[in-house]
Design a binder for these strands. Structure first.
Lengths: 364, 364
DNA sequence: CTGAAAGCGCTTACAG
DNA sequence: CTGAAAGCGCTTACAG
């Protein structure tokens, strides 16, 4: 990490609270009640040591003066943290937005506050964001990494003492002794079961559409797809594994690649990298005069909210991102409670949700 | 605010940092370098008072020991805050997710950290979340309020001394002396210009579709719609103002309401409350044998990413949510710098983005 | 140019 | 049951 980048973050100017009305503190309450501030502190945490009358007087005074607890001060003294950093690669993707909502929900329920950071898929920005969040000494970090994030890179910024949970994508590289928990989807099994469903519907010419082949999730899903084909004795056609950026627009634009080489023997079905790609592909198919759900079968992955109301509604693998968010928060807090636990890697199964985008292979 | 709810939040257990390796502090660096910690502090903030050699020695030592600045401690001492609370009503809506990303981006660039909270459209949860975030004494709050949030309610939780910026929806009620800035879209002018465009395309039977009539944004958009009709001398038909929850699913389900009462004189176009509704309506129309973009015109509002890749691509009013997020952050920080400024209410114009969902009214 | 001291708003033994 | 004192990790006058 360049030194001046690191120093830079400290020199920001802030607006002093001094010229605003002074905050009410424990001292103010204690003085007003004629007790010590230790007593007020005990009231705050509901200690049974305090006499009921005293407690009552103190509580009333807090209400009266509009006292607001200063958790930062308390945390400093107790050497604890009530914040968890959440760094998201792409908030505009509903899958990750839902995940973030789930994390925040679960953390909030446990009394933690979420420090948000978004990397917009840029490893450089991700480093910056992590560095800035580290200065708040979070109890842990939940990271949905930017594409091609490097483990060593991240260790440099966050050190080895802050619990880290990586979501969704494995980190590239791996620094020896740099440990983190992992929560991901069972991409391989998921893609396999999507492919198997298409096979069961009678399709034999099935493409794998979309995604960047280097990303770990795309690689795994392709493997699952191949597993299913091989298990049925079908060949894997490299020209039917089509790469696109994992977005609706790109998928739409590349739909014709499915039919480029094969005048008649073209695919009748596609296992898509994710829902965004599947929705884009369906649009592209319509543009090409095909009718997804009628003469072409499409499956997605993620089950984002739009999948259910697509045209046609999309058969997809449900990953329940909000539930994943809650699960990630749980895992991280467990780790924070027991730093010496061995590394955990949880891979959650995804479930086929069948809708209307996957007709039988009746039209050859 | 019930007293025990308020106390409840303080008693959460945390995991002490004590059993983890002790953090490196300024003291450690000072001791190792044989200087006082005041000197180290000066180095940290780039003071010119420190001798270049000393600075060098100190910086090297920080690198060596892996020192991480503790901003919470610094903030406590300086009586400043480097956090801003961001409370969002619905993170799973890409419009708000984009807004959140914009806020975080702009705050990060100014050295602030974002404390995230999501209310899931529940005023009760919103109160809770705000209460919890207040304990971190944020420099300000950016609130995209839950439906039917009450101003008095919110004042009770956040007091009058923390700068507040409300986004998108006005708060119901208004406590005298409770001041906050407001950033919103020009809903009325936006809906008016969408309607005017449909009129210019020859449509004369235009519905206003979707949204909850009580919400301020829906009320304003309906007014703009009526403005345009009246300006063209057309009557406003109450049965053509159709209420639905502002979601794709609900809009889809209520599409037939457009044609319920008017066997032949039914609308040929609909100004929709927002994009989600418009996308749902287009799906519903297709279900009913209509062809949005061919024999029926639909406009949206927001320009969420899906609008451009809808079927057909949706004509809509662009609100550039990410830019709005940046703007909200700017406004809040300006307010934090100058608490005595008069209240500001900024209403940004939205722009018509014409796509394929709005054909001429050629088919009567 | 550097150091000793006080203080931000809390909590926590330790006395009484 | 309550109070006086020390300390979390910083910054900030104030001396020197």
């Amino acid at each position: 990490m360049p030194q001046d980048e690191w120093l830079g973050s400290i020199q920001t100017r802030r607006y002093p609270l001094l010229d605003r009305p002074r905050r009410i503190t424990l001292n103010d309450i204690a003085r007003a009640c004629g007790v010590s501030r230790a007593t007020v502190s005990l009231v705050l945490r509901g200690s049974p040591l305090v006499h009921a009358d005293t407690r009552r007087r103190v509580e009333d005074e807090m209400q009266r003066q509009g006292y607001v607890y200063n958790r930062a001060a308390a945390n400093l003294r107790q050497r604890v943290s009530s914040a968890v950093a959440l760094v998201i690669n792409d908030l505009s993707n509903p899958f990750f937005a839902e995940f973030a909502a789930g994390v925040d929900e679960a953390l909030g329920a446990k009394g933690y506050v979420t420090l948000l950071g978004s990397s917009n898929e840029s490893p450089a920005r991700q480093r910056q964001v992590l560095g800035s969040l580290m200065e708040h000494h979070p109890a842990g970090i939940i990271l949905s990494p930017a594409e091609s994030s490097d483990a060593g890179d991240i260790e440099l910024v966050i050190g080895r003492h802050t619990p880290l949970l990586v979501f969704n994508r494995e980190l590239a590289g791996s620094a020896a002794g740099f440990d983190y928990d992992f929560l991901g989807l069972d991409n391989r099994a998921g893609a396999r079961s999507a492919t198997e469903r298409l096979l069961a519907l009678g399709h034999t010419r099935i493409a794998f559409f979309g995604g960047h082949a280097e990303s770990s999730s795309c690689r795994e899903r392709r493997l699952g797809y191949q597993d299913a084909l091989r298990a049925s004795g079908l060949p894997v056609e490299p020209r039917w594994m089509i790469e696109t950026a994992p977005t609706r627009l790109e998928a739409n634009a590349h739909a014709d690649a499915l039919f480029a080489a094969d005048a008649d023997g073209a695919p009748t079905a596609a296992v898509c990298y994710n829902d965004a790609v599947a929705l884009g592909l369906m649009l592209g198919l319509a543009r090409l005069g095909r009718h997804p759900g009628v003469d072409f079968a499409v499956t997605g992955f993620d089950d984002i909210p739009e999948a259910a109301v697509g045209i046609p509604p999309l058969t997809t693998m449900s990953a329940a991102p909000r539930a994943r968010g809650r699960q990630a928060a749980e895992m991280l807090l467990q780790r924070a409670a027991a730093p010496s636990l061995p590394r955990r890697s949880v891979v959650v199964p995804v479930q086929l949700t069948e809708r209307d985008s996957t007709p039988h292979a009746s039209n050859p």
